[in-house]
Amino acid sequence: MTVRGVLKTLSPLFACIGLLCVWQIASLRLDTESSPTALEAIKAIPSILGDKGSLLNILDSIRRMAIGLVLAVMFAIPLGLLMGRIKAVAAFFNPLMMIIYPVPKAALMPIIMLWMGVGDVSKILVIFLGVSLPIIYHAFQGSKAVEEKMLWSGAAMGMSAPMRMLRIVLPAALPEILTGCRTGLVLALITMITSEMIARQSGAGNILFNSLDMAQYDTVFAMILIIGAMGIVFDAAFEKLRLSLVRWSQPRDDMPLSFT
């Protein structure tokens, strides 16, 4: 590998180290109890991950996030695709979406808790709501943009309307759908943490706020690092999957916005 190649591969690492250095210097300068240094926060990570209770809490969070995300994907993709092709479906769901869109989904959490308690159902529902909208939107855009002549070509081959939906609209809109899913994935993480901060019962968000209550600031920052790392890993893994699915649509010299 050339020097330039090595630099290119390592540059994300340099960016992370740089950020940690700035943090380290800033907290040393500030020198208050509520701002631990980067090193202190990093040192607290093994004790969190080594603790069985914390680890189970984090895995619990991931489980809820995964369920919410999968449900949202299964609901949002077909709906978005139908909205993009059938005017009546779009006319019905568009106003509903416009009403739900600007509402922060976490703001619904208290009401949902009132109805469904503080358990898994409420949290999964909030994650589902938060993730669905961007995926619906992108699936809708992707499906709307499918070339009419492509569908005509399929119709001339004898494909029925549902077949064209499944075999032409879905694959043609896939790059756009996966862009929505990528946004959805990160939103799922964000909503997951937020929901656990409101309905404090278990999970990563709960660990974070419990530590804050107990003034364990190094644990607070360590949790933020862990959550951030989770986001990076999920996103990078998804990006790998996405690229393998839609390589046919990628421009030759693409500038990736990810850690992959």
């Binding site: 070509s153 081959m157 004898g158 694959p171 839609v246």
Partner: peptide
């Protein structure tokens, strides 16, 4: 399928 179209825009399946 008794009438096969060919369009100016090609309309190939890119995937």
């Amino acid at each position: 399928p008794d009438r096969g179209p060919v369009f100016q825009e090609f309309a190939l399946f890119p995937w």
